[in-house]
Amino acid sequence: MLVKKRTGIEIPSSEITPKHLYLSRRKFLKGAAVGAATLAGSAVLASCRPSAPGSEVETPPGEVGATTDELDDSLTEYRHVIGYNNFYEFALDKESVAAKAANFVTSPWQVTVGGLVNNPKTYDLDDLGKFDQEERIYRLRCVEGWSMVIPWIGFPLSALLADVEPRSNAKYVRFETLYDPEQMPGQRSRGYSWPYVEGLRLDEAVHDLTLLATGLYGEGLPPQNGAPVRLVVPWKYGFKNIKSIVKIDLVEEMPISLWMQASPREYGFYANVNPEVPHPRWSQATERRIGESARRDTPIFNGYADQVAALYEGMDLQVNF
């Protein structure tokens, strides 16, 4: 009779872990340890990163009536509104405009309004302040494919135009920026036909959305944003919003803007925000809102189609871009 003798330490072969398994288990443990260490390491690293600068960095100086526009889009942070500016008269680089414009003298200031009007007038800053000032929260879409939401302060251009009484033969409004190469070093470069000129058709100019802005975020305009008075036409690309205006003329012929002269193929007179009209460099179908990382679709007329589409009825917007 075969009796299998059991010793105390005998282990059934079924319970012995095969070598390759226990080796892989070690590997797994090692891997897990490395993984945990990496996780812990990155957590430590992340905790070392300073917190993102919020609005406490640059507190808006004034009160703002709302924190979003009518589409529920949040206002662009104040520090970006005053720190990221296209103003070639001071610098080509958007981030250095604010420093270069810091000493720009905006008072005393005069805006001469004339041309085909019955009542030509020169306004100083106090005169402009007499128009009823209101806050308007507008989206600003730059032709370069970025955008902001800005709480402007100002008054409708129509109020000023009513004051000077355009004649019946006035068809367009022509705007001009200050020409002062001493203060605006960019005007010394011969690449552009200074001073900056922009224009609107009269019906666009008297549209209720068209604003002469004198401030933003509850205070007067900072120099880099076009102090002391600038145009804001929210359904057009940003470059239409001529800054630091000294001259407004009512004219019969379509004004040639600085950008039309620089590159007629790229910049038209109308410059309405239109995702259907491509630009040789920038996608106009989408835009990046400053402060966001993903792109968003650009709506026609920058989302103001209900108010302004009628102005262009029957016009081919591909031709009249």
């Binding site: 300073p50 993102a52 990221y84 400053i290």
Partner: peptide, 10 residues
């Protein structure tokens, strides 16, 4: 790391 990439970091 220090949030100095500007208004349009990308």
């Amino acid at each position: 790391w220090f949030y100095q990439l500007g208004a349009d970091p990308i």
